[in-house]
Design a binder for these strands. Structure first.
Length: 243
DNA sequence: AGGTATGATTAGGA
DNA sequence: TCCTAATCATACCT
């Protein structure tokens, strides 16, 4: 189960000394999964390490308090030993009672830390689920690519990465967007006609500019602009994919 | 408030 | 593994 692994990896479940190395291992493990949502994910990790830090400082505090209390009790016993005989067994018993008490407190701390991690985790997953529209700029870039590659709107992995970078979204978001776009375009081409014309015109203008520059450079006047003049009518393969 | 747009998720296919 | 198609859940618009 992934959740258990996460909890164990975070070093929360293991209060042993050497938590530093456990934390480092956890950080390395977390960094080792270059999945989506890097921004939110880093935020999540920051909060997680905050929780972990709190846990460790609290643990230290408890330990210190335990030691202080133990020496305090020992001093009291020593004082009492002047008036009545105190066996080593009794001292041992007292110490073990104190330790037991404090370890139960530590257990509580551990439990509440685990709870905090769980809450954080579920919030993180919820946040991922929540939808946020992409920026107008990002949509523009994606649409530009889509309509200028209408005959084959399937960006390669590299193209997806490039688009993701330009739009400051993740590659999987780019894939989602193209998946949605292809299907929705196909379902209702009429509805998207205006948009298609808009973007085709836009790319035609930029292509014209490029062509003009090329003309100026080479003095030839046969610009081979892609998609110039018309908007490619989509056709479909037998398997339903946009060709 | 209700309808639409849109990003994410899921199931199933090649 | 990447795709389509359907669907969900929420944002956004009127």
């Amino acid at each position: 189960m992934r959740l258990d692994n996460m909890l164990l990896a975070e070093g929360v479940a293991g209060p042993e000394k050497g938590g530093g190395s456990a934390a480092a291992a956890a950080a390395a493990a977390a960094a080792g999964s270059p999945t989506d949502n890097s921004i939110e994910h880093s935020d999540y990790r920051a909060k997680l390490s905050q929780i972990r830090q709190i846990y460790h400082t609290e643990l230290e505090k408890y330990e210190q308090a335990c030691n202080e209390f133990t020496t305090h009790v020992m001093n009291l016993l020593r004082e009492q030993s002047r008036t009545r005989p105190i066996s080593p067994k009794e001292i041992e018993r007292m110490v073990s009672i104190i330790h037991r008490k404090f370890s139960s407190i530590q257990m509580q701390l551990k439990q509440s830390t685990c709870e905090a991690v769980m809450i954080l985790r579920s919030r993180f997953l919820d946040a991922r689920r929540k939808r946020r529209n992409f920026s107008k700029q990002a949509t523009e870039i994606l649409n530009e690519y889509f309509y200028s590659h209408l005959s084959n709107p399937y960006p390669s992995e590299e193209a997806k990465e490039e688009l993701a970078k330009k739009c400051s979204i993740t590659v999987s978001q780019v894939s989602n967007w193209f998946g949605n776009k292809r299907i929705r375009y196909k379902k209702n081409i009429g509805k998207f006609q205006e948009e298609a014309n808009l973007y085709a015109a836009k790319t035609a203008v930029t292509a014209a500019h490029a062509a003009a520059a090329a003309v100026q450079n080479s003095q030839t006047n046969s610009p081979t602009t892609p998609n110039s003049g018309g908007y490619p009518a989509p056709c479909y393969q037998s398997d339903g994919r946009i060709q």
